[in-house]
């Protein structure tokens, strides 16, 4: 059978060509090359990819965001607070060597090298909607494996009611961590049933390539029914705990960011509505992007059929 080309590899490439033509037309191609800025298209070509990635059957067929959009518009405060900063400061994230410390209520805690974390897992491409708490959204093809498969290997015990995750702490290299923008290291958490849910993904790549630094290299969470900040990047620690763990944004502004932070169009952020979102995808470029209408945000980001039962009987206005 001939090698199958994934849809995710086709649409963005077209967009790259258009961009390149536009740049050339504007006479900017040479300037950008001269400044040594890594253009996203070159990054895309240069980043190593994966072999043997199977396709998940339930991926959304909505128009995907381009590789460029997904890798140049990021909230990753460790690499700067402007959404363009993480791509510019990507080199500041040192990912080799990478170890993950596993601890708390489990039998097989300890320090694991990244290779040992990844080795047993077959990789899968899943196209998920990503809804940011700031009311914009993307559609991204992730490469990863179910978090549950990884967590089970550590044999959590009956006291493991929650899982806490932490991002790398490296204030010497990470420009954002030189300032107390948030309490470092960035911490996130999930209830154990959320962490074990088949939709919860441990991602190592996007668009068929290894995760760039700005997207949370080399290992990040993707929890598609929650606001993006729950999907913690560049994970170095996994802890099984009995009590609801403290999480970074909740500590910073408890009124604005709850522990659950499920995508919910009916619960407004104190300063803006969450009823609608602006989709940033390959169709939204140039002047036409200005006039693309916002779309209605779906309950649990459109994954209600799969996850609503996790929250049966809970008041989601209180447990926001």
């Amino acid at each position: 059978m001939a090698t199958k080309i994934k849809s995710s590899e086709i649409t963005p490439e077209n967009v790259f060509r258009q961009r390149r033509l536009l740049l050339q037309a504007a006479g900017l191609g040479l300037g950008a090359a001269g400044t040594g800025i890594m253009m996203p298209e070159r990054l895309h070509a240069a980043t190593p990819g994966f072999e043997n990635v199977s396709e998940w059957a339930a991926s959304t067929d909505e128009t995907q965001s381009s590789f460029e959009q997904a890798t140049t518009y990021n909230n990753f405060y460790e690499l700067g607070t402007d959404k363009g900063d993480p791509a510019k400061n990507a080199k500041a994230l040192v990912t080799e060597p990478w170890t993950v410390e596993v601890g708390g209520e489990c039998e097989k805690g300890g320090k694991y090298a990244l290779e040992d974390i990844l080795k047993p897992h077959a990789l899968e491409e899943r196209v998920y909607r990503l809804r940011c708490v700031e009311a914009w959204s993307m559609v991204i093809p992730w490469v990863g494996f179910p978090l549950a498969d990884l967590l089970k290997r550590f044999e959590p015990n009956s006291k493991a009611k929650y899982v806490q995750f932490e991002t790398i702490l490296d204030p010497e290299n990470l420009p954002g961590q030189k300032f107390p923008i948030l309490q470092w290291p960035y911490a996130e958490g999930l209830r154990i049933d959320e962490a074990m849910h088949p939709l919860t993904l441990m991602a190592v790549g996007l668009y068929g390539k290894e995760l760039p630094a700005q997207n949370g290299a080399p290992l990040r969470l993707v929890v598609p029914w929650k606001y993006g900040f729950k999907s913690i990047k560049s994970i170095v620690s996994i802890n099984f705990v009995e009590e609801e763990p403290a999480t970074s944004w909740n500590k910073s502004a408890p009124r604005e960011y709850g522990f659950y932070s499920n995508v919910n169009p009916q619960v407004s952020h104190p300063r803006w509505s969450q009823a609608k979102e602006r989709r940033l995808d390959a169709d939204s470029s140039g002047f036409s992007a200005l006039f693309s209408e916002k779309r209605d945000t779906e309950m649990f980001n459109g994954y209600a059929d799969e996850v609503a039962s996790l929250y049966a009987g809970m008041d989601l206005k209180k447990s926001f």
Binding site: R19, L22, A26, K83, G286, L290
Partner: peptide, 9 residues
Amino acid sequence: VATSRFVDP
């Protein structure tokens, strides 16, 4: 905006 420099124009 015209040259798609902004991801969210």
